[in-house]
Design a binder for these strands. Structure first.
Length: 210
DNA sequence: ATACAGATCGGT
DNA sequence: CCGATCTGTATA
């Protein structure tokens, strides 16, 4: 598996959200190397998307990274307690991004258990093991991703991606996004993608699964 | 200066 | 379903 170049990220949020499924997210930190396979993503499409922080091209200190070049990390604090990790998409001045909503642990699972629950992996229940990375806040805790990672270059050496195998189309579900009830018409935009066969998906849409 | 809501999570 | 917990953002 290879680290994609900048050009890989230079596509629309929706296109990148699809392309990220199956890729590995790697965090090389003081805790060692932590790796997860991306199994659920959501696109945030900027100017026309009422669910996006960058809706109407709102440009603030927080949203600034999204206005920069693609392939950088946008990490923000939500509800004063959890971090969410995004990959900046599209080109300079087009503030689109992809939220990573779920991972499957690939490497460093023992460290993930300590980071999430403060205990050893062997002591974790089946439910806790799924709960390691099946949500945007959870995966940041497990991967030790914090505000410190905001603005980091994913073409760099600390936080980066490895291009994986694209899942077959029949295993990919395309549906609406989670927890954006305030976003009016954007509630219905089909900007969420997930790998149906993965047990780590955060919220399933049974009506779109066959 | 102040008010308020939120791309979440865990427990009830 | 509620509360935790706090920052970004808007309004005055």
């Amino acid at each position: 598996m290879r680290k994609p170049d900048r050009n890989f990220y230079s596509k629309s949020g929706v296109e990148l959200a699809k392309a990220l499924l199956g890729c590995h997210l790697v965090h090389s930190s003081e805790h060692g190397r932590l790796i997860g396979k991306i199994v659920e993503t959501e696109a945030y499409m900027g100017a026309m998307d009422k669910a996006a922080h960058s809706y109407n091209n709102r440009r603030t200190k927080r949203t600034e990274v999204m206005f920069g070049p693609p392939g950088y990390a946008y990490v923000y604090l939500i509800y004063g307690m959890y971090y969410c990790a995004n990959v900046v998409a599209a080109d300079q001045d087009i503030p689109q991004a992809v939220l990573i909503r779920a991972l499957e642990p690939v490497e460093g699972m023992e460290k993930m258990a300590v980071l999430r629950y403060g205990k050893q992996l062997e002591e974790c229940s089946r439910r806790e093991i799924i709960g390691l990375t099946n949500g945007p806040g959870k995966l940041c805790q497990a991967m030790n991703i914090t505000g410190r990672n905001n603005g980091q270059d994913l073409c760099g050496r600390e936080l980066y991606l490895l291009k994986g195998e694209t899942p077959p189309a029949e295993d990919v579900v395309n549906t609406t996004r989670i927890n954006i009830g305030y976003a009016e018409e954007a509630i219905h935009f089909p900007y969420r993608f997930y790998i149906k066969s993965s047990p780590y998906v955060s919220v399933r849409d049974r009506s779109k699964e066959s």
